[in-house]
Design a protein around this nucleic acid. Structure first.
Lengths: 111, 111
DNA sequence: GAAGTATTTAAATAATAAGATAATTAAGCA
DNA sequence: TGCTTAATTATCTTATTATTTAAATACTTC
């Protein structure tokens, strides 16, 4: 996937500390809504909405086990984030910095 | 830096396609507000606001050259994003997946 | 089938975001 | 000084977000 709108949804979902904390918890493994809500003083419907945001961004998937709705992390969309950052890597990567400096030096010598 | 609120601002800033396009342009080098605005059919004040959002997230810095306000990319905050994703890397990393499977197999054999 | 548990939907509110146009500031130039 | 260019601030509108409480749904168990 990884179209523009998908990235919009992923970054918007990640822009909230509650949702990032939920993902962090899910990195340890599957969990139900109540379990995920437990660390927060927020109401359950609020958490439910956060989960829907995460689901629509495809950062999580949700199962069905009796009355439980177990949530699982979907790492694919996080991979998309990393992939997006790759276009900027050369800016902070030391090797490329060195190359940049070499180019600047070269320019300097020939102007 | 890289506290929680800073990440909120960075992800929120990245959740908009216009702002991501601006960053993409700035990856090629410094640019003024009018130059950055040129590819969009949006009004200049709208772009100005987007730039302020990017600046407050510290994704860009802005200079002063006569009546121009040249913008530069600040890669540090993008580095923070990559750093944040590191806690999830093991989930999609093939080597770790293989390890996970081995552990599951082991469990399976001993239950 | 009544009661309890897990979760979602509904409805309301307050805050924030994205955009527009109009007005303003600030610098350079004739 | 007055004109032009670059950019920001002000104001307004519309849409979306985060949150709450109350009600509804769905499944399990007694």
């Amino acid at each position: 996937m990884e179209d523009v709108e998908a990235l919009d949804a992923v970054f918007a979902a990640l822009a909230n500390p509650t949702r990032r904390a939920i993902l962090s918890r899910l990195a340890e493994g599957e969990a139900t809504v109540n379990t995920l809500a437990e660390p927060f003083k927020m109401s359950l419907p609020a958490i439910s909405k956060h989960l829907r945001v995460l689901e629509q961004a495809e950062l999580i998937t949700r199962g069905k086990d009796a009355q439980f709705r177990p949530c699982r992390l979907n790492a694919e969309r996080l991979k998309d984030v990393v992939h997006w950052t790759e276009q900027y890597r050369h800016i902070w990567d030391a090797r490329f910095d060195a190359l940049d400096r070499a180019i600047e030096d070269f320019k300097g010598d020939h102007e």
